[in-house]
């Protein structure tokens, strides 16, 4: 009996130490486009589509929507909700230097604001 309990305890300790719990994950589903196509499609619509630029300003990253510079997610969401042409979709133009956190947040905000489609557009590389 004693040796069996020893083995059982060793097994228990092994599983206790090695177990890592999987964190719950979900997904975002942006369309992908390259810069040239975005410029073409933006000229076709009657209203200007929502284009969120995710940029680097000095040490911090910002969202730029029209002439407005936004730092907080909630503020971005508020501004995006005002747009009327939700069916035209929105575009998230992403600079290389911004953390991926900000990029994902911009896509999330567009979907949460009610845009039917969100396109991920990598910003043109600076010369």
């Amino acid at each position: 009996m004693t040796s069996m309990i020893d083995v059982v305890f060793l097994l228990l300790i092994f599983f206790l130490v090695t177990t890592t719990f999987v964190k719950a994950e979900r997904q975002l589903r942006p369309m992908i486009q390259v810069q040239e196509e975005t410029q073409e499609s933006s000229q076709q619509g009657f209203l200007e589509p929502a284009v969120v630029y995710v940029k680097r300003r000095g040490t911090q990253s910002i969202f730029k929507l029209g002439g407005r510079e936004i730092t907080a997610y909630d503020e971005l969401l508020e501004v995006l909700q005002v747009f009327e042409n939700k069916e035209d979709g929105s575009f998230v133009v992403v600079d290389d230097q911004v953390p991926f956190d900000m990029t994902a947040a911009a896509i999330q905000a567009c979907r949460e604001a009610g845009f039917t489609s969100v396109s991920y557009v990598p910003a043109n590389e600076s010369p």
Partner: peptide, 17 residues
């Protein structure tokens, strides 16, 4: 995304936690 777009892929999935 640039390269996937060249391959004709039009949609991706982004994992969030």
């Amino acid at each position: 995304v640039r390269k996937l777009s060249e391959l004709g892929i039009r949609q991706i999935r982004v994992g969030v936690q």
